[in-house]
Each structure stands twice: as C-alpha cells, then as structure tokens.
Amino acid sequence: MDILLEDIRAKNANKITWIGFFVNLILTVIKLIAGILGNSTAMIADAIHSLSDFTTDIVVLISFRIVRKPPDKDHNYGHGKFETLATIIIGIALFIVGLGILYSSIKNIYLVIILKNNLESPGIIAVITALLSMITKELLFRFTLKIGQEIKSSAVIANAWHHRSDAFSSIGTFLGIGGAILLGDNWEILDPIAAIIVSIFIMKTAYDISIGSIKELLEESLDVITNKEILEIIENVDKVRSPHELKTRKVGNKIIIDIHINVENTLNIIEAHKINDEIERKIKAVYGNDTIINIHTEPEDD
C-alpha cells in the first residue's frame, strides 16, 4: 500500500473516530447528569460505560498518530507497543471502575432486602436518556463498522463493537429504570440490579480490551490457524523446500514472522533471493505491507 493510500486510510479512520469521540463525550456528560438528577445508579453506571468508549476513541486516535511514525534507532520495529501499553492501562482502569459500580449496587440491594431501607425512585429523565443512548450508539456502531470494513482496520472495527456493547448496556439500563418507574415504589431495586448488569458489561469490556494486549506484550505467538496459513503460503511458493522453525508475534498492528526455508543446492544467490522476495510479496498481500518477514535460507540436504 503506497503512502497516498495509507494517508487516506488514516484520514478516514481519524474522521469516524473523532465523530465517535464527541458523541461519546456528549453522551457521557448527559448520562451522568441524568443519573444524578434522576437518582439512578444504573444510569450513572451506563455513563461510566460510555466513558469506556470515549477512552477507546482516544487510544485509536493516538495509535494512528504514533504508530504511523517510522521505525527509529530506539524502536527498530516501529511504535506499535505504545498503543498496546495504553490499551492495557485503560482496560485496568475500566475494570476497577466496574468493580466499584458492582460493589455500590450490591450494597444498595443489601440495604433494600436485608435492612429494609427504601431507595429513591429513578426519575423519567433517566429512562429518556437511556432510550436516546440506545438509538445513538446503535447508529454509531453501524457507521463505524462500515468505515472500518472499508479501510480494513481492526482497531476501528473493534471500536465499532465497543459502541455496540454500550448500546446493549443502555438496553439493560432502560429496562431496569423503566421497570422501577412503571412498577412502583416496591420495585426500585430494579435500578441497582440493572447497574450490576452494566458493571458486568464494563468488566467484560475491560477484559476484552486488555487480554489481547497483555498477550502481545508477553510476546505470545499468533494463533494456530494464522501460523498454519502462513506456512501454507510459504509452502506454495515455487522451489521452497521444508519451511520450518516458524516464529510469529505482533507489534501493534504489525505482524513479525521469522522462518527458515530450504532451497535446492544448485540455486545461486540471486535465484534464492528471488524466492525470498516472492514469499514476502505473497505474505504481505494477505497480512499487509507493514508485515515484517525475516527469512533464513538454507541449502537442501542431499
């Protein structure tokens, strides 16, 4: 992919991410205000979940600014690990927030069931805000997913599904708050129950955000299916014999591949080099031009 196409790709990614950024910022503020004014723990929890989308937008924007910097003397394989580290920090912070909301919600349920205390009934502003959030985040999900698929960006596609998770949590909030309002004073407990559901969404989102990045920092190899596909590509290159010692890992969005191959003893260095070029071309056609491939060429044993 040439520089012009890469710039267009980055421009489209930044555009949709900035749209999501401001939508999430506005939704977070509205939900927080509605949760406070409407006395809804579930809505406050939903506001925190929107904040998770907001922070994910920041990660995507940073990644397209920093990761596109060329490798330098301190970062020979590029700057992809910065995105990885930031993602882990955000995931840990979100998980702690989710635990806090879970604790608060369980405490409120304890007050109602065990201590027989009454909770203040949530206001209509909270249920209206939940409905607004459901519609807005579903539309944002569809728009972001479309752009992500067009530019083939895993980060943008992941961000789209993050919007969808927020839409789902708003459904739980809407049902919990709406049930508490419609069913009367004896059902205020539905609001903290909905908050528990949302807190679980937040912690799951935090886990999903963090686990892949943690594996990447620990230099975990690519999955078995991807490794098998890489070997199949190499095996189908003419005059390649017995590809072996495959090692793979990720640096940000880049894939790094180390492989040993055998070639006929009669080939000269120019012919062997052409085989390596063909391997690189075919692999990059599948996994992108940023893929880093190190090939160790050995003569085939008699």
Rank of each mutant, 00 (worst) to 15 (best):
Leu132Pro: 00
Ala86Met: 13
Val240Ser: 06
Leu85Lys: 04
Lys215His: 12
Lys282Thr: 04
Ile19Ser: 03
Val156Asp: 09
Ile259Lys: 05
Ile128Tyr: 14
Lys239Asp: 13
Asn265His: 13
Phe54Trp: 14
Leu94Val: 07
Lys81Pro: 02
Tyr287Lys: 05
Asn186Gly: 01
Asp258Asn: 13
Gln149Met: 11
Leu145His: 07
Met134Ser: 02
Gly288Thr: 10
His260Ser: 02
Ile270Thr: 12
Lys247His: 04
Thr248Asp: 07
Val263Ser: 11
Leu218Val: 13
Asn39Asp: 06
Pro70Phe: 01
Asn268Gln: 13
Phe168Gly: 03
Gly179Trp: 03
Leu27Val: 12
Asn289Thr: 13
Asp191Asn: 01
Leu140Arg: 01
Glu150Thr: 12
Val23Ile: 15
Ala86Asn: 08
Asn236Ala: 11
Tyr287Arg: 05
Asn294Pro: 00
Phe174Ile: 03
Asn159Gly: 08
Gln149Asn: 15
Asp72Val: 05
Ser40Pro: 04
Ser121Asn: 05
Ile90Gly: 04
Ile48Arg: 01
Ile189Phe: 10
Asn24Phe: 04
Ile200Tyr: 02
Asp290Leu: 12
Ala272Leu: 10
Glu150Arg: 14
Ile124Val: 01
Val29Leu: 12
Ser104Asp: 11
Tyr77Glu: 08
Val23Ala: 09
Ile113Gly: 08
Ile255Val: 08
Ala130Ile: 11
Ser165Phe: 07
Glu83Arg: 04
Phe174Glu: 06
Leu115Cys: 00
Phe174Tyr: 06
Glu6Met: 01
Ile196His: 02
Lys73Gly: 00
Leu139Ile: 15
Ile8Cys: 07
Asn118Lys: 13
Leu5Trp: 07
Asn262Gly: 03
Tyr77Val: 01
Lys250Arg: 15
His79Tyr: 14
Phe64Asp: 08
Thr226Val: 14
Ile257Pro: 04
Gly148Pro: 12
Ser199Val: 03
Gly98Cys: 04
Asp191Glu: 02
Asn117Pro: 00
Ile230Arg: 13
Asn24Gln: 08
Leu140Cys: 02
Gly98Leu: 07
Lys152Pro: 02
Met1Asp: 10
Phe168Gln: 03
Glu278Met: 09
Gly178Val: 03
Asp223Gln: 07
Ile295Asn: 08
Ala86Glu: 01
Thr205Gln: 09
Ile171Lys: 05
Asn294Lys: 08
Ile230Leu: 15
Gly288Leu: 13
